[in-house]
Design a protein around this nucleic acid. Structure first.
Length: 706
DNA sequence: GACCTGCTGCGGCTTG
């Protein structure tokens, strides 16, 4: 891979490098970049010659250490620039820009807004741009921001600057190439390292729980069973345990701490998630790196990305993940240096009895997990998300552009932000004009007598606050404090009162005081406590996983990696599926409701829900299934047949019925009409919904529908 | 609908 990367980079091509793990990606990019720098000579003060953009401060710190080592002997200056870097160091770079600059998209945004006139000088000598963890930018607001910034940079310099993207392997690397170079993905050199068929050791274990205890005071039997198994299977080595929510992370961390205390052994299990104080998280990361003593992190997606945590023996995943790509990324954390990768998968299944519904008997979480593992073993993986307009981020970039130049005409703004090579190229001039009018109505923008766009009162106050630089919205939070120590934060949306018992950072606490005005919660250690965070992971599931779930239920083959209870539950699910004739008649009566199984991805499933609701049917998505309230199977089939036989609905009309379309940071300033267009194009799949309805009501079902 | 990511200038304080 490195051999192929070097000539491509040296020839000034855009290059996309894909590999499962960190395995040499950074070197493949930086070796040729550095050799180009040595060749052309490092001219001090004439501007940064290479720009590296990374999604995490911690990652930038890691890469800074590595590039310093690599470049120090070559006399190439390297600088890091993010929110934790001292202002004095930033001043030094501004005075004497040179060599390699490592930065976050947010800090780059601050440069555009605060140092607009200096941009051209700072990057006058720019020869290469490296984007690390490219997959984390694909399909996101932050990705639209980054590629808009790079396009603005090239516009300011009046020339093309070669880009090098480093990414996990994705389902369709060509689509990723199109993100790296919007409008020119076909000219990107794509290099993928297959990983050489590394051995994967894998087991899926099921644990049965009785019906959830509404009080939740005593952990259910599945949680206890999984915790027992983790305790014996993981102790003594360095491991990662991925749980799907912060609540679940806290729950398992507390359970494992209890087991360590009962066994009178040091606790090796530490929680790690985004609401824990930075110091606590760094302690956990340090103990993972320390080879002298074993440590296991129980984490959310925080440890999924490339932060250096050393070699990991085993990866555990509790509960199914919505995407195969994330499962692969997590598995890639174990088994470096030629060792086998080890994945321990755990599912909590609901115990069934005579009163259980068929839906319960189908054990869909287990079936979904098996489907994802099968697709992982076949090396399939979701393609990057389909392109959105990203109007919220276009608003941010427009305000930033006006701040950069002190004003812009509508035509200039459209050309720079929505022209060829920009991530907003799909936005039409009519849509852009509507957007300008919307922003004018909100006093975000004003227009001077000669037509120049300027920041209005509202735009001015938003751009002049540091929170402007991030393209994504962040939730309001309380700070949690105990005896002067910062423990972390908690979303403000959760109920909170004096005396509440909770689990946080793997320990049990009581709320002593809530200071509403400065959003601080004081805690004291306590004996009891329940996990604080609510909800379980959902996320968008691809249609391929749902199709595979149906195939698994209709199949007889039993995967070798299932434990005996999983085999038993899969058999039960297959018998329930067959005896309900779901293969030929995918409708199931449940009380007054009907459950429908379209076996399709979430986008199509949600479109069906919207459409049926506008037709007066009480429809909702329930995992893989569709629930039609107060509807008999005959009526459900008739409603779907009616929809299937009619003309395909107009996405705009369906979007108009959805109320909460303003989700992103600057959406509140965008008018209903544009939000409808964006939603119709990116969040609905009307053609797919009609197709699914036709399949559901196809002739092979007709005999049962009489 | 879960999860995660990021951020500046300056006023006011203490300390050498």
């Amino acid at each position: 891979m490195q051999d192929a990367a070097i000539p491509a980079v040296l020839n000034g091509h855009d290059v996309l490098i894909g590999a499962a793990t960190a395995a040499g990606k950074t070197e493949a990019a930086f070796l040729p970049v550095c050799s180009a720098l040595v060749e052309q000579g490092t001219s001090n003060g004439s501007g940064a010659q290479a720009l590296y953009v990374g999604p995490l401060k911690a990652l930038i710190n890691d890469q800074f250490r590595r590039t310093e080592e690599l470049c120090g002997s070559l006399d190439i200056p390297t600088h890091r620039w993010h929110g934790d870097v001292a202002a004095s160091r930033k001043q030094a770079v501004l005075k004497n820009p040179s060599g390699i600059l490592l930065i976050t998209p947010e800090s780059l945004e601050a440069l555009f807004v605060l140092r607009g006139p200096a941009i051209r000088r700072l990057f006058a000598a720019l020869g290469h741009v490296v984007v690390d963890e490219l997959h984390s930018f694909i399909g996101t607001e932050r990705g639209a921001q980054l590629f808009s910034q790079l396009h603005r940079l090239e516009t300011a310099l009046g020339r093309h600057v070669p880009r090098i993207g480093l990414s996990a392997t994705l389902g369709d690397m060509r689509l990723a190439a199109e993100q790296l170079r919007p409008g020119g993905g076909d000219r990107v050199t794509v290099l993928v390292s297959t990983g050489g068929g590394q051995e994967i050791r894998l087991q899926l274990r099921s644990y049965v729980t009785r019906r959830p205890d509404p009080g939740g005071e005593t952990p259910d039997t599945a949680v206890r069973g999984i915790a027992d198994h983790l305790f014996t299977a993981l102790r003594g080595r360095t491991n990662l345990v991925f749980a799907n929510s912060r609540r679940s992370v806290e729950q398992f961390a507390a359970e494992l701490a209890d087991r360590s205390a009962a066994a009178r052994v040091p606790n090796e299990f530490h929680p790690h998630h985004g609401n824990l104080a930075k110091e606590l998280r760094q302690d956990v990361e340090a103990s993972l790196r320390d080879p002298s003593r074993p440590a296991t992190a129980i984490c959310t997606s925080t440890l999924e990305m490339g932060i250096d945590i050393g070699a990991v023996a085993q990866v555990a995943q509790i509960g199914p993940l919505p995407s195969v790509a994330a499962l692969r990324q997590r598995l890639g954390r174990s088994g470096r240096r030629g060792e086998a990768a080890v994945l321990r998968a755990y599912v909590s299944a609901v115990a069934t009895d005579a009163r259980s519904t068929t839906l319960d008997r189908l054990q869909l979480p287990l079936v979904q997990f098996i489907a994802a593992i099968e697709l992982l073993l076949e090396r399939w993986c979701e393609p990057p998300e389909q392109a959105r307009l990203h109007l919220s981020t276009l608003v941010q970039q427009l305000l930033s552009l006006i701040a950069q130049h002190g004003g812009a005409t509508p035509a200039e703004a459209f050309r720079v932000l929505c022209g060829r090579g920009s991530p907003f190229a799909a936005v039409s001039s009519a849509q852009f004009a509507t957007l300008l009018r919307d922003l004018g109505c909100q006093e975000v923008l004003v227009q001077s007598a000669d037509g120049t766009l300027l920041l209005g009162p509202r735009g001015e106050s938003v751009v002049n606050h540091y929170t402007f630089y991030a393209a994504f919205r962040s939730p309001e939070e309380y700070r949690l404090v105990s005896a002067g120590q910062q423990l972390g934060t908690m979303p403000i949306s959760l109920p909170l009162y004096d005396g509440l018992l909770l689990v946080f950072s793997g320990r049990r606490w009581r709320v002593v005081a809530v200071h509403e005005s400065d959003k601080v919660v004081e805690l004291a250690p306590a004996a009891g406590g329940r996990p604080t965070f609510l909800g379980e992971a959902s996320g968008s599931v691809h249609g391929k996983i749902r199709t595979r779930m149906r195939e698994l239920l209709e199949d007889v083959v039993v995967p070798a990696y299932l434990d005996s209870r999983s085999v038993e539950l899969l058999g039960q699910a297959r018998r329930a599926y067959a005896s309900s004739h779901l293969d030929s008649y995918p409708f199931l009566a449940e009380g007054a409701d009907t459950i429908v199984f379209p076996w399709t991805g979430d986008r199509t499933l949600n479109t069906l829900v919207h459409v049926l609701n506008t037709r007066g049917v009480d429809a909702s998505a329930e995992g893989a299934a569709l629930r039609l309230g107060g509807t008999t199977p005959q009526a459900a089939a008739a409603a779907l047949a009616d929809f299937a036989e009619g003309t395909e609905p107009d996405p705009r009309a369906v979007a108009a019925t959805v109320v909460n379309k303003a989700q992103e940071k600057f959406d509140e300033w965008i008018g209903e009409s544009l939000l409808e267009e964006q939603f119709a194009a990116a969040d609905l799949d009307c053609a797919g919904a009609v197709k699914v309805a036709r399949v559901l009501t196809a002739t092979r079902h007709q005999d049962r529908m009489e």
